[in-house]
Amino acid sequence: MRTAIVFLAVATLAGCAGIQSPLSPAGDQAAALHSLFTLMMIVCGAVYLIVLLGIVWSVLRSGTQRRFDSASGGERRLDRGLYVAASAIVIGLTVLIVGSFIADRALVAAREDDAVIVRITGHQWWWRIEYRDPASGRWIETANELHLPLARTTRVQLASADVIHSFWVPNVAGKIDMIPGRRNVVHLTPRRLGWFRGQCTEFCGAQHAHMAFDVKVDGQAAFDSWLARQGSARAPRRQSGRGASVFVQVCGSCHRVRGTEARGRAGPDLTHFASRRSIAAGTLPMSRGGIQGWLAQPQALKPGTSMPTVPLEPADADAVATYLETLR
């Protein structure tokens, strides 16, 4: 029994840190919400303790005094107890209201006029991500992987192409819904380098659990270099060969690779596909086997996904997988 309790405690605490936890804040917004959560736990814990002490006191008192004696001042003691309880409730609620107001002001204060602008659109079940190039003003599209500059605010404009989704990067900021026909905004100001994990937190269909995205926080110079690479088209010399030809013919109506005849918009932009950490919004790790498996059986790996099963000869499938591995 003791071993089971220890195991349960360890397993529970394991969820309190890592790359997807609101209890390990790595951004201004997450830190403000974490402080509010801590305050709520302290206030609610104090109230819970007071209630328990009141119950214990009542039980002990009932054992020594079976009858309520008004002549001994029992009513006055009861009134005082009610006043104390009511005062504690009012004080607790006041503290929570003030804490909520301070947290809200902290979220607003994190906004910056020169923020990086990003548009994210939720699809069943993947993420279209677009960055506005500060130099040219054009939009640079990628998918399923969000890059953020350290210690600088990113203004993320959220929308949905189909049903209600919800955007959440627990370590960096709170969650916000993505509603069809409406554009919501969330601000992200990360304070720690590294990889984090985001997730859709509004049930949006059969593959809701397979609608994740990776988040990379880089220094400003590294972020600028990454964005410049993402804005570049593929070199023509890398677009020749059997794999490129088959891809354009079979996949080009749904996917786009800049600099080629593949100009589809139904699915993710694959211009720099192989530079990402995962395939199909976190469903598979980026690897040769993962690419081949996804090409062969997308409906088996992610039932209901918009990508159909494409009948390719083994040699053609291998050539397309080889080509996709070059898209970095």
Rank of each mutant, 00 (worst) to 15 (best):
V169A: 11
T201A: 11
L193S: 07
G174E: 05
R191M: 11
A222Q: 12
P180W: 09
G231I: 04
A212L: 15
N171T: 00
A161T: 00
N171R: 05
R192S: 10
A206P: 08
A228V: 08
Q207W: 11
F213T: 03
T154A: 04
F203D: 05
A161G: 03
H210D: 07
T201C: 12
M211W: 12
V185N: 09
R192H: 13
S232A: 15
A221P: 02
N184E: 14
L158A: 03
I164H: 07
Q199P: 05
A151C: 00
K216W: 12
C204M: 09
R191S: 11
A222L: 13
L193H: 06
I179Y: 08
W195T: 11
G181V: 08
V217Y: 14
H187C: 01
V217E: 02
K216Q: 09
Q207M: 04
Q220A: 14
V172I: 15
R192G: 03
S160M: 05
E202N: 10
V156E: 00
R182G: 03
C200M: 11
R155V: 01
A173G: 07
V185E: 14
S166T: 05
D177P: 06
R197K: 14
D177V: 02
G205R: 11
Q199W: 08
D218K: 09
H210Y: 10
Q230N: 05
A228E: 07
I164E: 05
A221T: 11
G194R: 08
W226Q: 03
G198K: 07
L188F: 15
A151G: 00
A209T: 08
T153M: 01
V186T: 14
S166Q: 14
T154Y: 05
T189Y: 13
A151K: 09
V215P: 08
T201S: 15
F223L: 04
R183W: 14
W195G: 03
M211G: 07
V215M: 07
R197W: 13
S232R: 14
V169R: 13
V163E: 11
P149K: 01
R182S: 08
L158T: 01
D177F: 10
V172R: 12
D177G: 03
L193A: 06
R192K: 15
A221G: 02
M178W: 13
E202P: 01
I164R: 04
N184T: 06
D162K: 03
G194W: 10
I164Y: 06
G181R: 15
V172S: 06
C204A: 13
L193C: 04
T154R: 01
W168M: 02
Q199L: 08
W195C: 02
A159V: 01
A161D: 04
A173C: 11
